[in-house]
Design a protein around this nucleic acid. Structure first.
Length: 881
RNA sequence: GCGGACGUGGUGGAACGGUAGACACACGAGACUUAAAAUCUCGAGGGGGCGACCCCGUGCGGGUUCGAGUCCCGCCGUCCGUACCA
């Protein structure tokens, strides 16, 4: 048969249809796993924003290669896909285009599902769901009610982050540099009654369990640990000096991690919102004005960095816990946060840079209490820098001479015994930076919070029989504000308890709730209860989770919490799994150049790569707008994103090159955790390889149409060389896919293709034919996970009427992985001088003798005798002279 | 400020402490072709030498080791995360 170009787009459709018709990727029944070990492979599910571009495809390709490989390795694989489908963009679309958020979302899903299918992903589509499906959010409402019953969901009035563009509340995790994570608008503070999930109840467990996540990137574990922010300290109550205390106040409580420095205290500082500050401000208009100023201070990074440390003396004085006659002034300071610790601190200028700056500015005393190791007590002085390290206590009465750690314990011990009122003066306290998760959103397109507010009965859960609380279809989106709240009828409901008219909750849940358990729902997506214990036990945890680093805190921390919380509320398995994701891989992005043209009124506008023509190369590259012909600026390389338009549409790509080329390209070259730059020449390289594999297999199939029963008696040198190359590649590809090191797997397959190409040159022989046939088959199987359509095509061309996806992963023959003869580098004093070929089993003595006999070695030794010879078997010889 | 990662040819990147630069891209030469595309072959870190060969090379400076891109210490640079957290 004459070689024909492999028509990827056409053949890919064919094979996708075959997989579909044979239900090739249906998940094995959990109850009948057939004794197979299980493997749950999951990529973070997408938000259905419109279309998929090549950038998105990398994530899914990596998961798919892993899933297909594990499948071939005999695992029962669960590899599902769904849609994180609630959220603001749908409502924005509704406002802009007068379409219902639901129809907009489901249309996008239909388009994107087809796109994912056209990539040839080995996904069990029978398990697909969207979080906006009533079936899904109904179960989520059940979970919420059980969390409510357990006290893990609750309502409180608090200061919240208000996004004035999205018109909704945001969680702390969703405020980045003082701006809403989605809208980018400067966040305002408002006092509202909101629903919260008690993530702080799990702070300790979430932190401690990070240690066990040894298949997570260290970076992510660290980020979570920092976010949880555990600190151990002491809360200390200071008695107010009666002469200066405002009415109704007799004490103030501070939190400190350094009680050892208590004798270095020179002032107390409280937040502008602290009750004591408010009380004092009532009598002092200047102080009131100062507090008001502080509230208006910005919260952005720039504001904070440039903001001066400012304070105002309240005139209130407190007694030092160990010396009633020692009075300390209480200041209001703009850098004290009301929502951390107690909103009050004691300032020790010698031990804290901020306190020192503050003390210098307002001429407060600076008393050193810790002598750094090696410093001289007689001359030690605090200059411009505070010392916050360990050392020996000085100027601290009964603490003098102790080290800082012992001093901490001593102060804690004494203050715990000392009492004031009926409570001890000091109490050990573990403090967290983590706050409870505010999940109320004043939006339409989210999961309704299933409660009813009754004037008499209070908050009443919607009865199970009335679930789900469905979103009304006929909401309006023509004005800002919550469409559920202004809907004419939806919120009016009778109280389930007393049956009097009452009001439905109009807040919906943060969409991060939806994504905090979808992975568990995939294990039994049609179960009548939120989760099926048996399926949870069998499939969870997720064995390999793959997604972007941007979810290091938000989604991954919420999921770790939520999965635990719902388990404690009765929705776990029976085997006590607490962690949802055993292994996490954070993949790099696909990046692309950006193109910037001058639009109307001198405004910069982004141009899509498909609208740009490039001329020249290297430094002389010039880009032109295809439509106007005008030159455009080539901007920086950035992550592919809709907003910068530097995206390559997946459909266009696949219809030109095929899915396998896309898959191969995004796996090539760059290590998967790093970004990969999209270039046309890079894609061209991938496309060439697709054709090359096809030509090689085609030619071999022509030459050796059927497999041999076994190796011929005489394999020949060429044949043996090829066999060794093939089997070594096989071992390497398996190892590297297992470790998600796809770029290395790709490289070794390129190398193999080169070896196969070379082996086609020598004159035919039975031995070589056998080796070629074997090479073609194994190469086909090895590219299978990465280029599955081409794999099927080659498998068929080799004469099989089975499907490649159903073939087990081939085993490398151990005998072919070792060489009888090995090349050893010969070094003299660590410098490579020569190499020798010896039998693999050669003795050290023989190797040593052979090395010393080399001219190059003799020359390098310059007549000196060898002092020592180090022989590392099968690796290297080093002659020390 | 704090925390982390990284730094290797023209480029993306390989390399259990053991022959640095695999593999790919770009480049050069050649074969095939009327020609082009496609394909195939060969070359290539830098410098020196006609040559066998020699010298220098993984950001910089030290150290450990028979041997360091890899481990340790100190710098420099880039990127990422995070921040009045008491």
């Amino acid at each position: 048969m004459a070689s024909e170009r492999y028509n990827a787009p056409a053949r890919e459709k064919h094979w996708q249809r075959v997989w579909d018709e044979t239900h090739a990727f249906r998940t094995p029944d959990a109850t009948a796993g057939g004794g197979k070990p299980k493997c749950y492979v999951l990529e973070m599910f997408p938000y259905p924003s419109g279309r998929i571009h090549v950038g998105h495809s990398r994530n899914y390709t990596m998961g798919d290669v892993f899933a297909r490989y594990k499948r071939a390795r005999g695992f029962a694989v669960l590899h599902p896909m769904g849609w994180d489908a609630f959220g603001m963009p749908a409502e924005n679309a509704a406002m802009e285009r007068k379409v219902h958020p639901g129809s907009w979302t489901y249309q996008n899903i239909a388009v994107m599902r087809d796109q994912l299918k056209s990539m040839g992903l080995a996904i069990d589509w029978e398990r697909e769901f969207a979080t906006c499906d009533a079936d899904y959010y109904a179960q989520q409402q059940r979970l919420f009610l059980d969390l409510l019953a357990k006290g893990l969901a609750y309502r409180k009035s608090s200061k919240v982050n208000w996004d004035p563009v999205d018109n909704t509340v945001l969680a702390n995790e969703q405020v980045i540099d003082g701006r809403g994570w989605r809208s980018g608008a400067l966040v305002e503070t408002r006092e509202l009654t909101q629903w919260f999930l008690r993530i702080t109840a799990y702070a300790d467990e979430l932190l401690a369990a990070l240690d066990g996540l040894d298949k997570w990137p260290e970076k992510v574990r660290l980020m979570q640990a920092n976010w949880i922010g555990r600190s151990e300290g002491l809360s200390v109550r200071f008695a107010l000096d009666k002469a200066t205390a405002p009415k109704g106040h007799s004490e103030v409580e501070v939190y400190t991690t350094r009680p050892d420095t208590l004798f270095g205290a020179s002032f107390l500082a409280v937040a502008p919102d602290h009750p004591l500050a408010k009380a004092a401000a009532d009598k002092d208009p200047d102080l009131a004005a100062f507090c008001e100023d502080c509230r208006h201070m910005g919260t952005s990074v720039v504001d904070l960095e440039s903001a001066e440390k400012k304070g105002f003396d309240t005139g209130i004085r407190v007694q030092h816990p160990f010396d009633k006659s020692w009075l300390l002034p209480v200041w209001v300071a703009n850098f004290i946060l009301m929502d951390y610790g107690t909103g009050a601190i004691f300032g020790c200028p010698a031990g804290d840079q901020r306190d020192l700056d503050f003390a210098r500015k307002y001429h407060l005393p600076v008393r050193p209490v810790i002598l750094p190791p090696g410093a001289d007590a007689a001359t030690y002085d605090v200059g411009a820098e505070a010392y916050d390290g360990p050392g020996t206590m000085i100027n601290s009465q009964f603490l003098d001479g102790l080290d800082t750690k012992a001093a901490f314990e001593e102060v804690a011990r004494r203050l715990e015994k000392k009492s004031m009122g009926k409570r001890p003066v000091g109490e050990r306290r573990v403090n967290f930076r983590l706050r409870d998760w505010g999940i109320s959103r004043q939006r339409y397109w989210g999961c309704p919070i299933p409660v009813i507010h009754c004037a008499d009965c209070g908050v009443v859960p919607v009865p199970q029989a009335d679930l789900p609380v469905r979103l009304p279809e006929d909401a309006t989106f023509d004005k800002p504000g919550n469409p559920l709240d202004r809907h004419p009828t939806w919120k009016h409901a009778d109280c389930p308890t007393c049956h009097k008219p009452a009001t439905r909750e109009t807040d919906t849940m943060d969409t991060f709730v939806d994504s905090s358990w979808y992975f568990a729902r995939f294990t039994a997506p049609k179960a009548a209860t939120p989760l099926d214990a048996q399926a949870v036990d069998y499939w969870l945890p997720v064995d390999q989770y793959i997604g972007g680093i941007e979810h290091a805190i938000l989604h991954l921390l919420y999921s770790r919490f939520f999965f635990r919380a719902i388990a404690d509320a009765g929705h776990g398995g029976t085997s006590g799994i607490r962690e949802p994701f055993a292994a996490l891989f954070t993949q790099g992005m696909v990046t692309h150049e950006t193109y910037v043209a001058e639009g109307e009124g001198g405004k910069s506008v982004w141009l899509a790569p498909s609208d740009v023509r490039i001329e020249g190369d290297g430094a002389d590259r010039v880009a032109y707008d295809v439509k106007s012909g005008k030159a455009v600026r080539i901007g920086g390389v950035e992550k592919m994103s809709k907003s910068k338009k530097n995206v390559v549409d997946l459909d266009a790509f696949i219809s030109e090159y095929g899915a396998d080329t896309a898959r191969w390209f995004v796996l090539s070259d760059s290590p998967p955790e790093r970004d990969v730059l999209y270039t046309d020449v890079g894609v061209e390289g991938a496309r060439r390889f697709v054709q090359r594999v096809w030509r090689l297999v085609d030619e071999i199939a022509e030459r050796v149409p059927a497999p041999f029963a076994g190796p011929p008696a005489e394999i020949g040198a060429e044949g043996l060389k090829l066999r060794k190359a093939v089997h070594k590649t096989l071992a390497n590809v398996g190892r590297t896919i297992e470790g998600l090191r796809f770029n290395v797997a790709v490289a070794s397959l390129y190398e193999l293709a080169n070896a196969v190409g070379s082996a086609l040159q020598p004159p035919p022989s039975a031995g070589l034919d056998f080796a070629l046939r074997e090479a073609a088959e194994l190469m086909t199987q090895m590219i299978g996970p990465m280029m599955p359509h081409l794999g099927e095509e080659c498998w068929a061309r080799l004469g099989y009427n089975t499907l490649l996806v159903n073939q087990p992963w081939p085993e490398a023959a151990p005998a072919l992985l070792v060489d009888d003869e090995v090349t050893l580098a010969v070094q003299v004093n660590g410098k490579r001088r020569d190499e020798i070929r010896v039998a693999r089993t050669a003795s050290s003595q023989d190797i040593e003798a052979a090395a010393l006999a080399l001219d190059s070695v003799v020359r390098a030794l310059e007549g000196r005798p060898a002092k020592k010879v180090i022989v590392v078997p099968q690796r290297i010889v080093n002659v020390v002279g």
